[in-house]
Amino acid sequence: MWLLKPPGVYAPQEDSHLLVTALERESLPPGAEVLDVGTGTGALAIAAARRGAARVTAVDASVRAVLTTRLNALLAGCRVRALSGDLLEPVAGERFHLVLANPPYVPTPHPGFPRHSLDRAWEAGPDGRAVLDRLCAQVPPLLLPGGVLLLVQSAFSSAPRTIELLTRSGLDADIVDRRLIPFGPVLRARAGWLRERGLLEPGQDKEELVVIRARRP
């Protein structure tokens, strides 16, 4: 789909496309309520609306991303409720049939919160789990019975840990998609640091992305 991609807003990349593929396999019930967490340009939210979701909500910490999502949805002829706030706070007390999440997951050697707004779309602490752990704790209560979480992350940020946490929360979780992609500029720049931490094999120049599907019984 054609989307506005202004500076400072995370544009759809391989992880986004992988999540859209997983979304297309899901059967949405009548009246489906869908949540897109960390929406960026709104690509996943719009894809969910086109799949027939009755109501799509998109959230992002970036006000610029929320405004971009609203405009892209308008241009696409889709109805998307876009809200700004910290992770899931804007939808506290609501419940959904499907939650889509493309959170920050890249391990970083830099302590503290990223200064630049676009960096916040991928920087996720030394183990890459600063946002993933919060999602694993906060998403399960938002799922309706039979509801599904589709989450994309890097193998560098421990997919087994994500599955373990979601399973502890009562969800049936497993990896449903994998894809190897060449390193982009961010990972190329920190390859030495990743190698020092034992996350990168000598000569490795590809990252494995995985989609985790977790269903509430």
Rank of each mutant, 00 (worst) to 15 (best):
A43V: 15
V56K: 01
L35R: 00
L88P: 07
G198R: 11
G40C: 08
R115Q: 12
S16E: 02
H116R: 12
G125N: 10
L194Y: 08
W2A: 14
L19A: 04
L166M: 08
T21W: 01
P140S: 00
F113M: 02
G170M: 07
C78M: 12
P103E: 05
G146Q: 10
V186N: 00
P29Y: 12
E26P: 07
L3V: 09
S16H: 04
D119K: 13
G93R: 15
H17M: 08
G8R: 07
A53S: 15
L74W: 11
E94W: 01
A65W: 00
E164Y: 13
L100Q: 15
D119W: 11
L98Y: 03
E207Q: 15
Y105L: 03
L118N: 05
A191H: 09
G40F: 01
A61Q: 10
V210K: 09
G184N: 06
H17T: 12
R179W: 01
D172S: 15
P126N: 12
R190N: 04
S62A: 12
P182T: 10
L149N: 13
N102K: 02
P90Q: 07
S62Y: 00
P104G: 08
L142A: 14
L142W: 10
S84M: 14
E24A: 13
G128K: 01
Y10N: 04
A214I: 00
L142E: 03
L18M: 09
L194W: 05
R64W: 05
V211L: 01
A47Y: 03
P29R: 15
V34G: 11
V139A: 07
E89D: 14
D205R: 15
A82F: 13
E26D: 05
L151P: 04
E208H: 11
P202M: 08
T68G: 04
L18R: 06
R129Y: 13
R134C: 02
G184K: 10
E164H: 14
D177P: 10
G184S: 08
W2H: 14
R81Q: 06
L35F: 01
A76E: 02
P109G: 13
S117F: 01
R50T: 14
A73P: 10
R129I: 10
T68H: 05
L150N: 02
T21Q: 09
R161G: 07
L199F: 06
I46H: 05
T69F: 03
D86R: 09
V56W: 00
T21L: 01
R179K: 08
G198E: 05
L100M: 14
L200C: 15
C136A: 14
P104I: 04
A45E: 01
G77I: 03
P29L: 15
P104V: 07
P7M: 15
L149C: 13
A159G: 06
R95N: 09
R55G: 14
G170H: 06
L23G: 08
L4D: 12
